[in-house]
Structures are given as structure tokens and as C-alpha cells.
């Protein structure tokens, strides 16, 4: 899947051949500012339009069989409430695999995107047997939904 960094790298494009008029300079300034905002906002999220509502549907059909969106609620896996930004293996009382506990990951959007693509490859030995979401758009949407769980 195309990563965010690659996607946003393209429009920056280096020199565009324009003469640096004030207007152009202003536009360049605005562009840089906007770009900075995009980089800050999407330093990790996948490069797809994110639809949290659609992500909720993905969550319900693919994730909720094992994970709750409610705080502190364990079903098969740990609650995903507040998962974005959380360190791996850190929900108190949950029986993690050694692999997950020792992975040293932080579940930022970028890491979540990689993990959700193929959990077993990112954390070999994880107890999460889910084979992964192979549709980048679904991943982007579900991560958008997870980001709202705070």
C-alpha cells in the first residue's frame, strides 16, 4: 500500500519553475504551511480518504468479534478504546503474548496501518490470529475510527 510519506512527498516536488513574485511567494508560503499542517496531521495516517463512519462498519464486521470499543472491556482481545498512541502490551491485566509485550511498538496510525496489514508479520508470535485487512482504504477508515476512541 502507498504510505502517507510517499504520497505527500509527490506534491512538494521541489522547484516548480515559477517566478518568485509576491503572489507566488505568498502561495508558496501558504503551500508550505498547508504542507506542514498535512505533515503534522498525517505524519502517519494512510494516504486514503479517511471515513470514520465507514471505519466503524469495518470495525464491527472485522474487529468487534474480538475487540470492544468500550473502555476496559475485554472480549477476546483487549479493548481498543484509546489504542491510538498506546504502547503495545500495555492494557493492565490483559494476558498478552510475549511477542506483543516485547515488541516495543507504539500504536500510532502508521504502525497500526502496518500491523493491520499483516499482524503476524509485524509481531511474529502474536496471539492475534486475524490475517489482516488487505484493503488500504478499509485500514485507513478503521484507523480513523480508532482515532476517535478517546
Amino acid at each position: 500500500m502507498p504510505r502517507t510519506e510517499r504520497t505527500i512527498a509527490s506534491p512538494t516536488g521541489g522547484s516548480n519553475g515559477l517566478v518568485a513574485t509576491p503572489c507566488v511567494a505568498y502561495l508558496q508560503h501558504v503551500g508550505r504551511t498547508a504542507l506542514a499542517a498535512i505533515v503534522v496531521f498525517a505524519s502517519s495516517p494512510p494516504a486514503h480518504a479517511q471515513d470514520a463512519d465507514a471505519g466503524k462498519q469495518v470495525f464491527r464486521s472485522q474487529c468487534s468479534i474480538c475487540h470492544s470499543a468500550q473502555p476496559g472491556r475485554t472480549i477476546v482481545g483487549p479493548s481498543l478504546f484509546g489504542v491510538v498512541g498506546r504502547h503495545s502490551g500495555s492494557v493492565p491485566g490483559f494476558h498478552y503474548s510475549n511477542a506483543n509485550r516485547q515488541s516495543g511498538l507504539t500504536w500510532d496510525p502508521s504502525t497500526l496501518d502496518r500491523y493491520l496489514t499483516s499482524p503476524q508479520q509485524v509481531v511474529p508470535g502474536t496471539l492475534m490470529t486475524f490475517p489482516g485487512l488487505h484493503d488500504p482504504k478499509q485500514r485507513a477508515n478503521v484507523i480513523a475510527f480508532l482515532k476517535g476512541l478517546h
Binding site: 464486521s61 472485522q62 468479534i65 474480538c66 477476546v76 486475524f130 490475517p131 488487505h134
Partner: peptide
């Protein structure tokens, strides 16, 4: 059945994920 197996059965054997 594990808890996941129960959820799969109650869910009508409809869960996907394979390719």
C-alpha cells in the same frame, strides 16, 4: 469453541478474512 468460535457461530458463520 473458544470465545471467538462462539462469536463466529452466533454470527452465522459469516466472518471473513481469508483470501
Amino acid at each position: 469453541l473458544t470465545p471467538l468460535g462462539r462469536a463466529f457461530k452466533i454470527g452465522g458463520y459469516t466472518q471473513t478474512g481469508g483470501q
